[in-house]
């Protein structure tokens, strides 16, 4: 009996791994996303959404994730690069001594101890129960203190008026904004747009609190990095290969 149970568990495990492997293809939902949260149920701290980015798979010059983010969230260039918001950007790294180069996408790291939340005077900058760090534009006064506090330069201030927003992603002049981890998609069991767009499978999205999720297993197996780990912010976005 116990043997049978075991073998069944193994079978399920293999199935899960197979499904998770399939996630590399765009649009395929991860197994650990399959438990839909009903619309009237609040996000819970049982989950902590996170992302693992493998910089060895991320190609210099590829901008797919940035383009997908812009399309999904309506973040477009207005021709003023200094003031244009950027929710996600491709960063090119070159080791000063060895000259080794890396390419990776950089966005809000969704810290467990977010400095932006600590400094926000009105509480507009907040962390949702499932670990997603957001700006509540209804009470953001546009003081930009969070931008001063963020060690990742993840936040942007909206310097100009915007129209034709995506109905799912309200955004407008005078407030601060940043990557929402595509919270509107997560809430309907979809993956962030950037993850879905990555043909190389360099981005893995999942629940860091679930030891059986693909992301947790990868983090348990391979050496992964938190950017500015010295700050002890416990980021939700992790990197592999740097």
């Amino acid at each position: 009996m116990s043997k049978m149970d075991n073998s069944r568990r193994l079978f399920i495990g293999a199935g899960a791994a197979a499904t998770a492997g399939l996630v590399i293809a765009p649009g395929v939902t991860l197994l650990d996303l399959a438990h839909a949260r009903p619309a009237d149920e609040a996000a819970s701290s049982a989950k902590r959404w996170g992302m693992l980015i493998d910089s060895s798979k991320c190609a210099t010059g590829c901008n797919d994730c940035v383009a997908a983010c812009g399309k999904e969230n309506g973040v477009a260039s207005t021709g003023h690069p200094e003031t244009d918001p950027q929710w996600i950007r491709k960063v090119e790294l070159k080791e000063i001594k060895t000259g080794t180069s890396h390419s990776l996408p950089m966005m809000c790291q969704h810290c467990a101890e977010p400095p932006c939340v600590d400094v926000c005077p009105t509480g507009a900058s907040f962390k949702r129960a499932d670990g997603i760090v957001l700006v509540d534009r209804h009470i953001c006064i546009g003081c930009r203190y969070c931008m001063m506090a963020c060690p990742y330069k993840a936040r942007s201030f909206v310097h100009e008026e915007h129209e034709d927003q995506n109905p799912d992603v309200p955004r407008g002049k005078g407030c601060v904004e940043s990557c929402t981890l595509c919270v509107h998609r997560i809430d309907r069991d979809q993956q962030p747009a950037c993850v879905e767009s990555c043909k190389e499978g360099a981005m893995l999205f999942g629940d860091l609190n679930d030891p059986n999720s693909e992301i947790s297993k990868r983090i348990a197996t391979y050496a992964t990095t938190q950017v500015r780990a010295d700050l002890g912010l416990n980021t939700g976005v992790r990197y592999q290969g740097i």
Partner: peptide, 25 residues
């Protein structure tokens, strides 16, 4: 200079006490 200076009332009524700014209010 605030991005949304029309929301002064929000700044006065929503105070996040871990913020030095809010403390300064």
């Amino acid at each position: 200079d605030l991005g949304r200076n029309d929301r002064l009332i929000v700044a006065m009524t929503h105070l996040n006490l871990t913020s030095v700014f809010a403390l300064n209010v």
